[in-house]
Design a protein around this nucleic acid. Structure first.
Length: 398
DNA sequence: TGGGGTTAT
DNA sequence: ATAACCC
């Protein structure tokens, strides 16, 4: 890949007009990685015939963000803690036996010098994550995100252009070698199914009867994972664009009263409203998610959702508290719809999600809305993404 | 086991 | 509304 010059670390690109020094921060990401021996991956992947797709996989991303925030942490064993878990850690910590998703107790036992920082608030991680994606989008707009720390970039066009510029003698010296990423399929349910069929390795999967597999798993999944077992992945890189939902969650040992729940919901909501304000689009649906205490049950979440009333939608992003009250009312109705508050209950998680996001300026906002909501055109909110009403022509409306 | 995300049904 | 998948 060096021949193609696509390492993020090499990009010093001027980012004119933006007061934030993010190219420097990105250089820091690279530096932090280098200082740790670079396990961050920039690999050609999803190889199939003639595409050039690069997989950018940042390792221990949260820990790297923390080390950039506080360079004193750089040479110490560092873990990022969420509740009782060390969700990720830097290389110093790994050398001393700390693993991802290790219990705080076990981690401290293994490594008493371990420095822990709280990583329950994802704000800075999310921001850095999008900076990485935006950087990659400079090479090609076709960037697909996977979680906060992985991106797939389709560079086919860039490479073809580059090849066209080369003289023929130079061309003969170019070899494009692809690393075929052997996608283990780690899906829990599917793995269990495969195990039941006696399929325990990639080779087992390669040689297993297609017909039987299709009958067991359905034709779609069967064909896909069997191709994957040969390292073939033809799936297009889908540009992720802006997020389709915003959510905030909190887990805890016990929440057993309505007041307690309301307080937690208000906290989640306050953060969410800030995020929605900065994004500029408006959610048209809210969802409340709970997890009840039960001895087991792996993915036992329940949710209720409803449309957000239009008069509330319009107050969103105006950065005021008028929205809090009606939104809390809506969420508490959803809450009581799921939880019988007259009976004892025991929750271990609450989450609020805004989804069904719509752009404000292009959506089918009718003429009536337009004329009756002058406050929209003066909307301000502390981000650089604040929305301003564009010049409007009649053709914009149906 | 956290605190996010996505798509399919 | 849930389930499965990803990190």
């Amino acid at each position: 890949m060096e021949k193609l010059g696509v390492e993020p670390e090499e990009e010093g690109g001027g980012d004119e007009g933006d007061t934030e020094a993010w190219p420097m921060e990105l250089a820091d990401v690279g530096a932090a990685a280098s200082s740790q021996g670079v396990r961050d991956q920039v690999l050609p992947t999803r190889n199939s015939s003639s595409r050039v797709i690069v997989h950018v996989d940042l390792d221990c991303f949260y820990a790297q963000v923390e080390m950039i925030s506080n360079p004193e942490l750089k040479d110490k064993p560092l873990g990022v803690q969420q509740k009782y878990l060390v969700v990720t850690c830097n290389y110093e910590a790994r050398k001393l036996g700390v693993k991802k998703l290790m219990n705080v107790r076990d981690a401290k036992e293994k490594c008493p010098q371990l420095v822990l920082v709280n990583g329950e608030d994802l704000t800075r991680y999310r921001e850095m994550s999008y900076k990485v994606t935006e950087l990659l989008e400079e090479f090609s707009p076709v960037v697909e995100r996977l979680g906060f720390d992985e991106n797939f970039v389709d560079l086919t066009e860039m490479v073809e252009k580059r090849l066209q510029q080369l003289q023929s003698d130079e061309l003969s010296a170019v070899t494009v070698s692809g690393h075929v990423y052997n996608n283990q399929c780690i899906g829990y349910k599917t793995a269990k199914c495969l195990e039941a069929l006696g399929i325990n390795s990639v080779h087992d999967l390669q040689t297993f009867s297609s017909k039987i597999l299709e009958k067991e798993l359905g034709i779609s999944l069967a064909q896909r994972i069997q191709k994957l077992s040969f390292g073939e992945d033809n799936s297009p890189v889908i540009p992720s664009g802006p997020p389709q939902s915003f959510s905030e969650e909190d887990s805890f040992k016990k929440c057993s009263s309505e007041v307690e729940a309301k307080n937690k919901i208000e906290e989640l909501l306050a953060s969410l409203l800030n995020r929605v304000c900065q994004d500029g689009r408006k959610p048209h649906t809210v969802r409340l998610i709970i997890r009840r205490y039960t001895s087991e049950k792996h993915c036992g979440r329940e949710s209720r959702q409803c449309p957000i009333p239009s008069h509330v939608i319009q107050k969103l992003g105006t950065g005021n508290y008028d929205v809090m009250t009606p939104m809390v009312d809506i969420l508490m109705k959803l809450f009581r719809n799921m939880v019988n508050v007259k009976m004892p209950f025991h929750l271990t998680l609450l989450s609020v999600c805004f989804c069904n996001l719509k752009a404000v300026n292009t959506a089918k906002r009718g003429l009536i809305d337009y004329y009756l909501t002058p406050s929209l055109s003066t909307t301000s909110c502390s981000g650089k993404h604040s929305f301003k009403m564009k010049d409007t022509h009649m053709e914009d409306f149906p």
